[in-house]
């Protein structure tokens, strides 16, 4: 917390380089899902004029299942994008020259949830059970986890709902801590009836959401990148210190996007984002990608044959917050 507050003070004390310029620089950002509190920091930074304060005329594009943030960044339809670390490493490995300019989330929010009534209390209890998993990158951690504990698990493809789990069609389900977990709670199952597996507690921390841009964007105008990162992080810190206001902002963008709103759910999500974004070690600044986390993620990707070589960390991650400090 202390580090976060210091960071905020620092950010407030040093308005972006662009602030002195009379003309605002245009920049677009695409989140990797539709509007929700998972991206509260960006919406708040936009809504409270924080981007503007940093000299950016920012626009947030509509994200969601039909609008891949990876594609938008790659095709230069967006200047900045929110992308999962594991996906970004794969893209980099595939030759897309993107760089991580801020690792916003410090811990993975992807978890496995099982019912205690199914006799599942620890990893070994999952052996021989049916577990529904989302496809793609969502399976990296669970599979590495099963491998690590030598579990023989029957994997069932998981769609958008958790109903299969609620109806006991599967024994465990993959879930985002800030989303599906709360949906389960609000479907009438009490937290003490559930067993949750947080992968970071099993040495498989995959920090998720980060801010990415293309190398060429950074080369062309580094100050824009710094300003965007600082403004976004300030938006997050503002959201954490003004949660009710932040939730209202998020709800506004959700309604604009015609997405059903549920205030308590967004509130929960914002609270979890706080847990996920603020580093546990208060002396660590927010938005920094930890080298060892990077190596764990890249290692799992290579083992699974998803990348051939681990991209160089130092050219992958640019510490924008640090740079601004200097």
């Amino acid at each position: 917390m202390k580090g976060a507050i210091l960071g905020l003070l620092f950010l407030l004390a040093c308005p972006g380089l662009g602030a002195e310029e009379a003309v605002l620089k245009k920049a677009s950002f695409i989140p990797h899902w539709s509007p929700q509190a998972q991206f509260a920091g960006y919406y708040v930074a936009l809504d409270k004029g924080i981007y503007r304060k940093y000299g950016i005329d920012a626009g947030i594009l509509q994200g969601g299942p039909d609008f891949s943030s990876c594609e938008y960044l790659k095709d230069k339809k967006a200047d900045f994008a929110s992308i999962w670390l594991s996906r970004a490493i794969q893209m980099r490995s595939e030759g897309v020259r993107l760089i991580n300019v801020a690792q916003v989330m410090q811990r993975s929010a992807l978890i496995l949830i099982a019912k205690k009534s199914g006799g599942i209390h620890e990893p070994k209890d999952l052996n021989g059970k049916k577990v529904s998993l989302w496809e793609g990158d969502f399976q990296l951690q669970p599979k590495a986890f099963f491998k690590k504990y030598g579990l023989d698990v029957k994997i069932v493809p998981q769609s958008y709902t958790i109903n299969l789990f609620l109806r006991d069609g599967v024994d465990a389900v993959s879930a985002m801590w800030y989303n599906e977990y709360h949906t389960i709670i609000n479907s009438g199952i009490d937290p003490d009836e559930l067993t949750t597996f947080f992968f970071d507690e099993y040495g498989l921390n995959f920090p998720e959401d980060g801010i990415y841009t293309l190398e060429e964007t950074f080369r062309r105008d580094p100050s824009l990148v710094y300003a965007f990162v600082q403004a976004s992080l300030e938006g997050w810190l503002y959201s954490f210190s003004h949660p009710d206001e932040a939730v209202d902002v998020v709800l506004k963008y959700m309604r604009d996007a015609r997405i059903p709103v549920n205030k308590v759910h967004q509130k929960w999500m914002l609270e979890r984002m706080r847990d996920l974004i603020l580093p546990k070690d208060t002396s660590v600044m927010i938005g920094v990608l930890d080298r060892s986390d990077y190596e764990v993620v890249a290692g799992v990707l290579r083992e699974n044959g998803m990348i051939k070589d681990v991209p160089d960390f130092d050219s992958f991650f640019i510490r924008c917050a640090d740079h601004a400090k200097r």
Binding site: N186, S187, G188, V261, N262, V264, H265
Partner: peptide, 26 residues
């Protein structure tokens, strides 16, 4: 519904948006 989702209710805003549990939480 089985998930507690409010299917019919005089308050239209609740329908399909809230579960009885999310109302309780709120």
């Amino acid at each position: 519904s089985r998930n507690g989702t409010i299917v019919t209710h005089p308050l239209k805003d609740l329908i399909m948006h809230e579960t009885i549990f999310s109302v309780a939480e709120e």
